[in-house]
């Protein structure tokens, strides 16, 4: 994954804050934000996850003219192999870690460069063989300064997780 241009915008921060039911006005009101310690609207802690919006190749977004695996007339828009189905598309999320060098704010234009990390396997009690893979994304600002380092771990399961 590479995100070449992730413009941080106040309206996007507002929508993101709403979606995590966070009514801290620092995410909504620039006048209020001036009275806070950061002195500006900032992004909520997990906001850089929304860089997916600016990844042209992001696989979990329907694209014009391309088949989509969600339901329409049929339960899935594409034929899929029956094995390894536990993750649906792109596996499940096992871990997420962030290190904040500073907090993004409206006006920032971030880039995100992702590098693969470790991979490992484990036998899962509820889902068969688990294959974990780590990726590290460095978000840098318009001046090339590191803003957020994100480390994600994804897992593919042999079958859906038993409930």
């Amino acid at each position: 994954m590479a995100v070449n241009k992730f413009p941080v915008e106040a309206s996007h921060i507002m929508m993101f804050a709403r979606s995590v039911a966070d009514d801290n006005q620092i995410y909504y009101d620039d006048e209020y934000a001036k009275t806070t310690e950061p002195g500006t609207i900032i992004a909520p802690p997990t906001f850089v996850q929304a860089s997916a919006q600016f990844d042209p190749d992001y696989s979990l977004r329907p694209k014009v003219g391309a088949p989509w695996f969600g339901s329409g007339k049929e339960p899935s828009g594409i034929k899929r192999e029956s094995s390894g189905g536990g993750g649906g598309g792109g596996g499940l999320h096992a871990e997420q870690h962030y290190e904040y060098h500073r907090h993004p704010k409206p006006g920032d234009i971030l880039t995100g460069e992702t590098k693969p990390g470790k991979t490992w396997e484990k036998e899962g009690r509820r889902s068969g063989k688990l294959v974990f893979s780590e990726s590290i994304t460095e978000y840098r600002d318009q001046n090339g300064e590191l803003v957020v380092t994100a480390r994600g771990v994804g897992v593919r399961t042999e079958r859906p997780v038993d409930q």
Partner: peptide, 14 residues
């Protein structure tokens, strides 16, 4: 808001 439209989260049929 996040851009993650994986049907596992919103598409009961799938």
């Amino acid at each position: 808001a996040s851009g993650d439209y994986n049907p596992l989260h919103t598409d009961e049929v799938f």
